[in-house]
Design a protein around this nucleic acid. Structure first.
Lengths: 255, 255
DNA sequence: CCAATGTCCTGGTATATACCAAGATAAAAG
DNA sequence: CTTTTATCTTGGTATATACCAGGACATTGG
């Protein structure tokens, strides 16, 4: 005992070695953005491990956000994370326009629906009121970033569907209907993708993503639009600057 | 050929059946919060599938946030998600005190360090300046919720470590040092846990979680504290209310 | 030149098995 | 009654193998 201490890190599991290797390759830039990672089988042979172990390692790297899988085409290096300042704008499109992000919108579906209880509460309308509903896929440089479902109070935006929906609806509502956003209620959480979302985002089902919900209010505090985005988790970062309201003791002196 | 169409959903994979079953059990309340899920082996036998397939199903349910694993003790039903309004308070503790959440703080480590480039930039001090650093684990009703690493500018808080760190440091800094938080810069993203975090949170490494970073400023706009929390993803939801700054056309009239 | 075809590579699913280590628990020893 | 020990259960890791279906791509036929 104590003769072979040179083999320092032998506690490492096989798939952790692979993870570390892939991480290095990606972080060092040897594998640039959107470059293909070795396949499960290739890694298995190269490291002398079974394909299933190689697979676990690749899935871990995927979870880590360093790589993304694209159906049966293979796995690729994730692009750099992008930040979305939720306290400055309610429209990601408006946010993205300034920087050159190569944003593209694909319309997946549009329909006219009746508000259910949950939507009615969020949009301060009666249950059964007419709403526009449309689903869109947002791509950054050709790569899926998030899926958005949006609900708009119908009577405020007559003939909304006659306009092009491949643009910022927030800007559209402001320009065409004189309805500028004034404030927003936002919720962010992590959850698993359902089958449809996974398909659109090119991810395996049950992958985790980040959901961002927002209710947009006009200057009078009336909600007119509710949106629900589900992002590829490795892609997004949300920032905000918060000014704190007066709390229990309105500290005299300053302020 | 056309005789057995009653077996309607036979395209379902084995592990999807298990997922649906577990989801039902949890959503319907047959399995209450923190109740134990069947083990991998038990599910395998019950559904006539191999343990590895049962395992994949359980991992998917875990990813979905419906269940959490707790080392080698088994898997359990996740408690209800809790919301944390980031635009109203910078202290989760202060936030949690009001509601009866059963919050407990465990001090993991504390040390005095020199600021590296990244920390120096965030806290507006010189590289090499002295900082307090402490890591704490936050538990809700006895269950790990998030790990927090906090960095405070040392010269502003003499003898910080002589105080009890099992309380809200924001409140501590306000009460003992007359340094109330005025505003905060917040960033939220999804990322994988490292080994230490996974251990503390009772999760397998490389699981995804939600990271919340915040820089806290005083009334003069000077940063004095930087915190980094990593949450169990299925547990947290972050909300904010944003008032939009004047954009291209400073809408006349209100405000 | 273009469309159709077939082959190869890829990840997704699934089985059956094996060993390990940590947690839980019951049994044995003090 | 308490402490220690041994056993059982659990998830974590790992292998070797197999079949399927979709994407990529070169070859073939018109």
């Amino acid at each position: 005992m104590g003769a072979n201490d040179l083999t320092s890190e032998k506690k490492m599991t096989a798939f952790q070695k692979v993870i570390d290797h892939l991480r290095d390759q990606i972080r060092s830039g040897k594998l640039p953005e959107h470059a293909a990672l070795p396949s499960e089988r290739a890694i298995g042979e190269h490291f002398g491990i079974s394909r299933m172990t190689a697979r676990r390692a690749l899935l871990a790297v995927e979870q880590e956000g360093l790589a993304y899988s694209s159906g049966r085409r293979g796995r690729f290096v994730s692009p750099q994370r992008l930040t979305y300042d939720i306290s400055k704008t309610v429209s990601f499109f408006a946010h993205a326009e300034s920087g050159e992000l190569g944003l593209k919108i694909e319309l997946i579906s549009k329909q006219i629906i009746q508000a259910d209880a949950a939507l009615a509460a969020k949009l301060a309308v009666a249950e059964g009121d007419t709403l526009y509903k449309y689903t869109r896929l947002f791509l950054l440089k050709g790569h899926p970033a998030f899926v958005e479902e949006e609900f708009a109070v119908a009577h405020l935006f007559p003939d909304l569907f006659s306009h092009d929906l491949q643009q910022s609806t927030t800007l559209l509502m402001e320009r065409e209907y004189g309805m500028p956003p004034h404030s927003g209620d936002i919720a962010i959480r992590m959850r698993a993708l359902n089958e449809e979302e996974a398909g659109l985002l090119g991810l395996p089902t049950y992958n985790a993503g980040i959901e961002l919900e927002q209710v947009i209010f006009d200057a009078g505090g009336r909600p007119f639009c509710f949106g629900r985005q589900i992002w590829r988790g490795e892609l997004a970062e949300f920032t905000a600057h918060a000014i704190l309201r007066n709390r229990r003791s309105p500290t005299p002196g300053k302020v």
